[in-house]
């Protein structure tokens, strides 16, 4: 299987994630779409690592996974805090970052 198939699939997944961020309004689904985009980037990193033939791109992908976990933790903490203050979970209502 040649590498460009993986890269084109990764581009397709990245565009799907970006489309979800443009379309959806729930902050939770937007976080899920960010996960999609980060995973598409991971797929490209691992594919390029296979193309070059050393494992450094895979280390990069593992670090990206750690960053994604941090982003999820902080984002879900924000969502829980917003929910506790009875603010509607809708990014259009949340555009003014005031309590």
């Amino acid at each position: 299987m040649s590498i460009d198939w993986f890269i084109v699939l990764s581009a397709l997944l990245f565009a799907t994630g970006a489309l979800g961020i443009l379309l959806r309004r729930s902050p939770m689904v937007i976080l899920l779409c960010l996960e999609l985009m980060l995973n598409a980037g991971n797929l490209a990193l691992v594919a390029f690592s296979r193309m070059v033939g050393n494992g450094q791109g895979q280390v990069f992908a593992v670090i990206v996974m750690v960053i994604a976990a941090c982003e999820v933790v902080v984002g879900l903490g924000l969502i829980v805090a917003i929910f506790r203050r009875r603010i509607p979970l809708n990014v259009d209502d949340l555009r003014e970052l005031r309590g």
Partner: peptide, 27 residues
């Protein structure tokens, strides 16, 4: 959806027109 499709086309053009010769091989 138009912007999403445009983003995919842009990324695909950027990948397929790159000068990385090893891209079309198995690695």
């Amino acid at each position: 959806p138009l912007l999403g499709i445009a983003l995919f086309i842009e990324l695909a053009v950027a990948v397929l027109s790159s000068s990385l010769l090893a891209l079309g091989e198995d690695g």
